[in-house]
Design a binder for these strands. Structure first.
Length: 903
RNA sequence: GGGCGAUUAGCUCAGUUGGUCUAGAGCGUCUGGUUUACACCCAGAAGGUCACAGGUUCGACCCCUGUAUCGCCCACCA
C-alpha cells in the first residue's frame, strides 16, 4: 500500500491553474498586500516589456516571462518590496495593419474609406481588447507573478497624459520640431516608418545603363529618373576633369530634351563604382536629398504617396511605378539611349518591417525629435539627448548584460539621426497639436489638453508607437487618478505618486537584444530627459529562440515552430521555463526542441518522487512532516547528514550570489545537479539505511525555496505537503534561506561523504559485474584512479564507514546478492588493496603532480610578492590567491606523506 | 564596406576577471540492472590534439596577433 498521499506522477496540467489562482487570491503579487510590508526596506521593480496586442504568446515571450519571473520571485523571497508591472502596447502600425488585413480578408477592400477614422479606431480598439484577454491568460500560464492590479496599457488615459506632457515639454524646449525631411514612406500602409523599422531584403532585378548626354549612368530604378537634371561626378575623377562644377549641357531624356547640370561632390561618389557618375533624385533618395541640400539643388517629386507617377512623367503619369519601369526602359531604348542591361543584378530593397510594404522615400512634412541640440540639463551640464544616452552607459549608471552590447549601443548612437515621430496612421496617440486659421494667419497650439473653442483642428498624424513605449518605466508608476487632475504639474504627478517614489528607477530591464535600439535606447532618452533619472540600472538582454536547425521560429512554419500553449499542458510550465533558462547565456540565441523540454520535465518529476520518498520515510518513522522542525533535530548527526548540511550551506551561498549577479543558467544547472545527483542519488539512497528525518525534511524544504523562482508550480504544490506548521502562507512568500559563514562549513564531513559515495559506487560496480568471476569483480572496483587513491589513503575511514553502512570489510570474497540491500542487511565486501596498486606508477604520478604543484605555488608566490599586484588588486582577489596557495601547500604535504608511505 | 560575435564529445550547449579543469552537462550510443520514491529510473562505459597557426606566461579553452569557416547588426549598392 502506498504510504503517501502524493500522486505517483506529477501532473502539471492538474496543479498549475489551481496554484496560479491561489497565488492571485493571496494577493502576494501585489507589494501592498505583503504581510510584513512595513518591515521591507529594499525595493525591487521590473516592468514587463509590453508584448504587443496583435498576437498570441510565442516562445520569445515565454523566455522573457521565465527570466523575469525568476528575478521577481527571487527578490520577493528575499523579502524585498517587489513589483512587476504587466502591460501591453498598442503597437500602432502592427495592430492597424492586422485589423485592416482582417477586414480585407472579409472582402472590405479599403476599410479606411469605408469606416472613416472614428469607426475604424473603434474596431481596432475592440480587437485590442480581445487580444489583451488572450495575452493575460497566456502570461498566467507561464506562472508570471506580476501584479495584475497595476496592469497598464499604452493607450490608457493616464499614460496618454504622460505622452502629452512629454510632447509639450519637448516642443517648448525646441527638441520637437516640424520640418520637411526625407522619410521612409510606405505607400501600402500610407505612413512613414522609422529608420530602424526599415528592413532590407536582397532581390535580383535587371540593372540598366543609359546614355545621359556625354555620361553613362546605371540604375535599377529607371522609373524614378524623370526629374533627374543633375549628374554628379567625383572632383578628382580624371575621366570627367573636362567638366566643371555647375556646367550645363543639353541632352535627350525620357520626356524629351532637358538641360542638365554637372555637380562635383566627393562625399557621395565612389569613383571605383561603375562609370563613376550618377544622376540624382533628391525627392526619393536620402543620399540624394543630402547632396541636394549641400549644393542647393532643386527637388522635384516624381512619385505620389500611392506609388504612382506624377504629371512630370508625361504620358506615363498616373501609372504605378512597378508597371512604369519596363515602359521607361522601352522609351529610352527606342531613343537609342539604352547602353546595356544586366539581367539579375543583386541589390537590396527596402521594406517596412511591419507589413512588408515597399519603402518609397519621400520628402514630407513630419515631426522630429532633435537628438543633437544641447539644451537638456544632465549632471549640471547642458547636453544633447544623444550625449546623455552615451553618458549613462559610459559612466556605468546603466549596465548592459552581456557587456558587449554596450559597444553595439554606442555604435548605434553614433549613427543616430533625428527621430521621426509622426505617423500617418489612425491607430495611436494623436499628436497634441492644433491649428487655427489659414496661410499667414495660421496659429499653432501645442498642449496637454485641447485648446478652447471650436475652430481648432487637430494635427491628423499619430505618434510613433515607441514614443509612448519609451515612457513605460515611469508612466506605469504614476497614479492614474492623479493624472485626471489637470491642475497638477508633471512634477506634482511624480512627487505625489507613491509607486513612482518607491519603485523608480526600476532595477532591471529584461528584453530581447533585437529591441535594444527600438526600445531600450529610447527609454533611456525619454526617461533621462523627462524624469532626470535613468529608467533602470541593469539591462539584461536575452537571445532569440531558434528551432532545432537554428532557424528563426516562425508561426507560418508549424513543423518547427513550438507553441508554448501546446507545450505547457504536455510538459508543464516549470519544465518549459527550465528548458529556456538552463544552458542559455544572455545575448546569445538558443535552440529549443521538445526533447530538451522533456528532459526538464523528467527533472521536475524526479523532485516530485524524491518528495514522495521523503513523505514515505516520515510515515515509516511515524512523524507528520509538518511538525518536523528541520535542522538536525537535536540528534547526533551522521557523517552523511553533516556532509549534506555543509554542502547545502555552500549551495545556498552559490545560488544567492549567482542570482544576485543574474547568472540564471549557472544557478539553474547547479540546483539541477545538486538535487538530482547529490540529494536523490546519494543522500536519499543512503538514508534508506539510516535516516535523520529532521535533516531530510529540512533539506527538502530548503530546495523548495531555492528552486521556487525556477519552478514555481511544482515547488508550491510540494510545499503544501512539507511546510512547517509554524510557517505562514504559501511558498511564494517564505524567507530565503540563509547560509552560514563559509569558515564554519564542515569540510571534513564533506570530504568523508565523498568517500562514502565512492565506496557505494564501488560496491555497485561489483554488483553490476555479477556473473563474472569473483577475482575480476574486485578489479572493477578499483579501476578508477579516484578509488585507488581513496581506498588506499582512507582505509581507516572506510572501515568506519563500512560500520556506518552496516558493511563489514574482511578478506572473504563477495557474498551479497545485490548492492542495495547492502545498507539493510549484513553483507561482507572484500576490498583487497595489495597487488592491485602499481606502486611504481603511483610514485611516478605523484612525482609529476608534485612538480606541477611546486611550479604553481612558485607562480602565486611571485604574484603575492609583487607589490604592485597586492596594492592594486581588490582585497578579495589577493585573498583568493592566498587561499590557493594554502590549498596547494596542503595538497603538497599530503602528496609527500603518501610518497613516504609508498617507499 | 564598418562593427559585433561564434567555432569545445555524434547533436545542443555551459565553462564566473589564466592555476583543483587530466575540459563539464543534457540528449543520443553501448553495457548491466526493476527489492514499492522515480524506466519521466539506477550503476557504469565509450566519445574531445577546446577551428587552425604563431606569441605572452612557471602555467592558456581563457590574454595578444594572424588565418579559415559560420552567424548577427549597421551602412550602402547611383
Amino acid at each position: 500500500m502506498d504510504k503517501t498521499n502524493i500522486p505517483k506522477a506529477y501532473d502539471a496540467k492538474q496543479v498549475e491553474d489551481k496554484i496560479y489562482s491561489a497565488w492571485e487570491k493571496s494577493g502576494l503579487f501585489n507589494p501592498d498586500k505583503a504581510p510584513d510590508r512595513d518591515k521591507r526596506k529594499e525595493s525591487f521593480s521590473i516592468v514587463l516589456p509590453l508584448p504587443n496586442v496583435t498576437g498570441t504568446l510565442h516562445l520569445g515571450h515565454a523566455a522573457m516571462l521565465a527570466i523575469e519571473d525568476i528575478m521577481t520571485r527571487y527578490a520577493r523571497l528575499q523579502g524585498k518590496d517587489t513589483l512587476w508591472v504587466p502591460g501591453t502596447d498598442h503597437a500602432a502600425i502592427a495592430t492597424e495593419s492586422v485589423v485592416i488585413k482582417n477586414f480585407q480578408a472579409e472582402g472590405i477592400e479599403d476599410p479606411r474609406a469605408k469606416f472613416g477614422r472614428e469607426e475604424l479606431v473603434k474596431h481596432i480598439s475592440d480587437f485590442v481588447e480581445d487580444s489583451k484577454k488572450t495575452m493575460r491568460s497566456q502570461i498566467r500560464k507561464m506562472g508570471a507573478s506580476c501584479d495584475w492590479s497595476r496592469e497598464k496599457y499604452t493607450m490608457d488615459l493616464s499614460l496618454s497624459r504622460c505622452v502629452h506632457e512629454v510632447f509639450k515639454k519637448m516642443y517648448d524646449d525646441g527638441l520637437i520640431y516640424r520640418g520637411h525631411r526625407i522619410v521612409n514612406w510606405d505607400p501600402k500602409m500610407q505612413t512613414t516608418v522609422a529608420d530602424d523599422e526599415v528592413e532590407y531584403v536582397e532581390r535580383k532585378e535587371p540593372y540598366y545603363t543609359f546614355q545621359y548626354g556625354p555620361f553613362q549612368i546605371s540604375t535599377s530604378r529607371p522609373e524614378t529618373k524623370f526629374g533627374d537634371k543633375y549628374v554628379v561626378v567625383h572632383p578628382d575623377d580624371k575621366r570627367y576633369a573636362k567638366f566643371k562644377n555647375g556646367e550645363t549641357f543639353e541632352c535627350e531624356w525620357i520626356s524629351g530634351k532637358i538641360t542638365a547640370t554637372v555637380i562635383k561632390d566627393a562625399e557621395i561618389i565612389d569613383m571605383e563604382q561603375g562609370t563613376g557618375c550618377m544622376t540624382v533624385t533628391p525627392w526619393h533618395d536620402k543620399a540624394d536629398f543630402d547632396l541636394a541640400e549641400r549644393h542647393g539643388l532643386e527637388k522635384e517629386q516624381v512619385i505620389d504617396y500611392d506609388g504612382k507617377l506624377l504629371p512630370i512623367a508625361g504620358k506615363l503619369a498616373g501609372m504605378h511605378i512597378e508597371k512604369a519601369r519596363p515602359k521607361v526602359v522601352e522609351i529610352l531604348e527606342e531613343k537609342g539611349l539604352l547602353v546595356k542591361t544586366e539581367e539579375s543584378y543583386e541589390h537590396n530593397v527596402a521594406l517596412n518591417y511591419r507589413g512588408k510594404g515597399m519603402i518609397e522615400p519621400q520628402i514630407m512634412e513630419q515631426w522630429f525629435i532633435d537628438v543633437n541640440k544641447q539644451v537638456v540639463s544632465w549632471k549640471k551640464k547642458k547636453m544633447s539627448l544623444k550625449e546623455i544616452m552615451q553618458d549613462v552607459v559610459k559612466s556605468g549608471d546603466i549596465k548592459i548584460i552581456p557587456e558587449r552590447f554596450e559597444k553595439t549601443y554606442f555604435h548605434w548612437i553614433d549613427n543616430l539621426w533625428d527621430w521621426c515621430i509622426s505617423r500617418q496612421i489612425w491607430w495611436g496617440h494623436r499628436i497634441p497639436v492644433w491649428y487655427r486659421g489659414e496661410g499667414k494667419d495660421r496659429v499653432t497650439y501645442v498642449g496637454v489638453t485641447p485648446p478652447d473653442g471650436d475652430e481648432w483642428e487637430q494635427d491628423p498624424d499619430t505618434l510613433d508607437t515607441w514614443f509612448s513605449s519609451a515612457l513605460w518605466t515611469w508612466s506605469t508608476l504614476i497614479d492614474p487618478e492623479l493624472t485626471e487632475d489637470h491642475s497638477l504639474s508633471f512634477q506634482d504627478l511624480l512627487e505625489k505618486s507613491p509607486d513612482f517614489q518607491k519603485f523608480h528607477s526600476t532595477n532591471v530591464m529584461e528584453t530581447g537584444y533585437d529591441i535594444l535600439f527600438f526600445w531600450v535606447a529610447r527609454m533611456i532618452l525619454m526617461t533621462t530627459y523627462m524624469v532626470s533619472d535613468v529608467p533602470f540600472d541593469t539591462v539584461y538582454l536575452h537571445g532569440m529562440v531558434r528551432t532545432r536547425e537554428g532557424k528563426k521560429m516562425s508561426k507560418s512554419d508549424p513543423e518547427t515552430c513550438i507553441d508554448p500553449l501546446e507545450i505547457i499542458p504536455k510538459y508543464g510550465a516549470d519544465a518549459l521555463r527550465l528548458s529556456m533558462i538552463v544552458g542559455q547565456s544572455p545575448g546569445n540565441d538558443f535552440r529549443l526542441y521538445e526533447e530538451k523540454i522533456g528532459g526538464y520535465r523528467n527533472f521536475v518529476n524526479k523532485l516530485w518522487n524524491a518528495s514522495r520518498f521523503v513523505q514515505m520515510k516520515c510515515e515509516d518513522e511515524g512523524v507528520d512532516p509538518h511538525t518536523v522542525a528541520g535542522g538536525g533535530g537535536g540528534a547526533e548527526l551522521s557523517l552523511a547528514d553533516r556532509a549534506m548540511q555543509s554542502s547545502l550551506d555552500s549551495l545556498i551561498a552559490d545560488v544567492t550570489k549567482g542570482l544576485d549577479e543574474y547568472r540564471l543558467s549557472e544557478v539553474g544547472e547547479k540546483l539541477y545537479s545538486f538535487i538530482w545527483d547529490y540529494f536523490c542519488d546519494w543522500y536519499l539512497e543512503l538514508s534508506k539505511g539510516e535516516t535523520n528525518i529532521n535533516m531530510l525534511v529540512g533539506t527538502l524544504r530548503t530546495f523548495l525555496v531555492l528552486l521556487h523562482p525556477y519552478c514555481p508550480f511544482v515547488t508550491e504544490e510540494l510545499w503544501e505537503h512539507f511546510k512547517f506548521e509554524k510557517s505562514e502562507g504559501m511558498l511564494i512568500s517564505q524567507p530565503w534561506p540563509v547560509h552560514s559563514d563559509p569558515a564554519r562549513q564542515d569540510k571534513d564531513a564533506e570530504r568523508d561523504f565523498q568517500i562514502i559515495i565512492d565506496v557505494i559506487s564501488a560496491i555497485r560496480s561489483i554488483r553490476a559485474d555479477q556473473g563474472v568471476e569473483p577475482g575480476l569483480k574486485l578489479k572493477v572496483i578499483i579501476h578508477t584512479k579516484k578509488h585507488l587513491e581513496l581506498l588506499e589513503s582512507q582505509q581507516e575511514h572506510i572501515e568506519r564507514l563500512a560500520k556506518l553502512s552496516e558493511l563489514s570489510i574482511d578478506s572473504d570474497p563477495v557474498k551479497h546478492e545485490n548492492a542495495a540491500s547492502a545498507f539493510l542487511k549484513d553483507i561482507e565486501v572484500h576490498i583487497p588493496l595489495e597487488g592491485v596498486i602499481d606502486f611504481e606508477k603511483e610514485r611516478e604520478k605523484l612525482g609529476k603532480e608534485k612538480e606541477k604543484l611546486e611550479s604553481f605555488m612558485k607562480g602565486i608566490e611571485s604574484k603575492l610578492n609583487n607589490k604592485k599586484f597586492v596594492s592594486n588588486a581588490p582585497a578579495e582577489v589577493v585573498d583568493t590567491e592566498k587561499d590557493k596557495l594554502k590549498n596547494a601547500q596542503d595538497k603538497l604535504n599530503k602528496i609527500e606523506e603518501r610518497l613516504k608511505t609508498l617507499k
